[in-house]
Each structure stands twice: as C-alpha cells, then as structure tokens.
C-alpha cells in the first residue's frame, strides 16, 4: 500500500533520516517510535507529501507522491491521506461542522453535510456540529481532528503524537478510535509517538532511535 525506496532527508549536508526500504500494506498498522529529534515527524511529513525528501521515492498505491506537481500533490493529500497532529489544529473562526466541510472543499470532493454529520455522529460529536471550536474540550477537539482526517475516506492515516497532550483516559480513547476507524475504512495507519501508553497496543513497530 505504502512503500518507501531509498529515502533520505537532511538539512544541507547533514543527514537526518535515511530509510532504504519500508512497506506498509493495506489496513496494516505501524507504530513509529523514537526519541524527539529522531526524525519521526520528518518521516511522517515526507509520507504525507508535506516535505520533499532529498532522495528516494514514496509510493502510495500506484502513485509516486513526489513525481506529482505541488498542486496535484495537495489535491492527492486532501483526498487520500488523513492527518492527525499532536495539537488539535482546528480553524477557530469556523464552527465544528464548517471545519469538516472545509476539508471536503479543499480536497475537491463534493461538499456533503450528511457525510459530515455521519462522521461526527460516529465519534459521538453529532451534537457539537454547530458549536464554536473554542467551546470544545481538548479531547473533543482531538476527536474532531480525527473526524476531519476520516471524512474523505482516506487510504492512509498519519498521526503525529496524537496522544501527547491528552490525559490517560483520552489517550486511550483516541488510540482505540484511530485503530477502529482505520479498520473500518481499510486504511493503513501510521502513528509516530514516544508515548509509552501507546506502545503495547501495536504489533508492528519501527524504532527510529535504534537504527
């Protein structure tokens, strides 16, 4: 589903990250571990098409991500990759529902309020659709970003430290949610974290500090 070939990334001459070969199959879950500064976020950004690698290829399905033009890559990301970050980055000028509609608008998929409510409902956020983002708790906001990531039925879900700013209870919920939703959409799920609470829940693990 997603494969990496001869990937390396660095600033000027300094090599930060180098992964010769990696593959994650459809509906497989992978945990990327590593201390801060080990390049987890960099790897995730490269996989998400946010950061051009120095060398190497990233292929999702049949698409070579970095052979696309910037504009095409933005569209591809919007339609096929769901991103979840450590902090719930929501557009605070918009309501919860409009935040999700925005994801449909920017990815170029049809704007479908029914789908928005469906996803919110799945994450127990149906009653919050009209609410302002600021009125939601941290945990709720993170659930909204997950809803946003799932909205366009992505083939790949990338989560960067999704639990770092949450308490145990919410952290557990978020991980369960990500796993079960990824299964539902048959999406590959990649989570980068140094959170010990998450570790035992995943079989497939990649430790960047060790390599």
């Amino acid at each position: 589903m997603i494969s990496i070939d001869g990937l390396s990334f660095g600033y000027s001459d300094q090599k930060v990250l180098s992964i010769p070969q990696m593959e994650v199959k459809e509906a497989e879950h992978l945990l990327i571990l590593g201390n801060s500064g080990s390049g987890k976020t960099t790897l995730l950004h490269i996989l998400g098409g946010l950061l051009q690698p120095k060398e190497g290829k990233v292929v999702i399905g049949n698409t070579d991500l970095y052979s696309l033009s910037g504009h095409q890559r933005d569209k591809y990301r919007g339609q096929n990759i769901g991103l979840v970050f450590q902090k719930a980055h929501l557009i605070s000028a918009l309501s919860v529902g409009d935040n999700l509609l925005l994801a449909q608008y920017f990815s170029g998929t049809a704007q479908d309020k029914g789908r928005v409510y469906e996803v919110l409902e799945e994450l127990n956020l149906g009653h919050k659709a009209e609410k302002k983002v600021r009125s939601l708790s941290q945990g709720e906001q993170q659930r909204v970003t997950i809803a946003r990531a799932l909205l366009n039925r992505p083939r790949l879900i990338l989560a960067d430290e999704p639990t770092a700013s949450l308490d145990d209870d919410n952290a557990k919920k978020v991980i369960e949610l990500l796993k079960c939703q990824a299964e539902k959409y048959q999406a590959s799920l990649l989570i980068a974290t140094h959170d010990q609470r998450v570790k035992e829940q995943f079989e497939l693990q990649l430790n960047l500090s060790a390599s």
């Binding site: 946010l50 933005d74 919007g78 920017f106």
Partner: peptide, 16 residues
C-alpha cells in the same frame, strides 16, 4: 500560519 498549514494539509493549493 497554523491555520494556513492545516488548510494546505487538507488539500488547499498555495494559490487558494
């Protein structure tokens, strides 16, 4: 700038 970065990650092009 976070909002803008998020919009980009949601598929918005630079031009948009």
């Amino acid at each position: 700038k976070y909002d803008l970065a998020i919009m980009r990650s949601l598929g918005a092009s630079r031009g948009k």
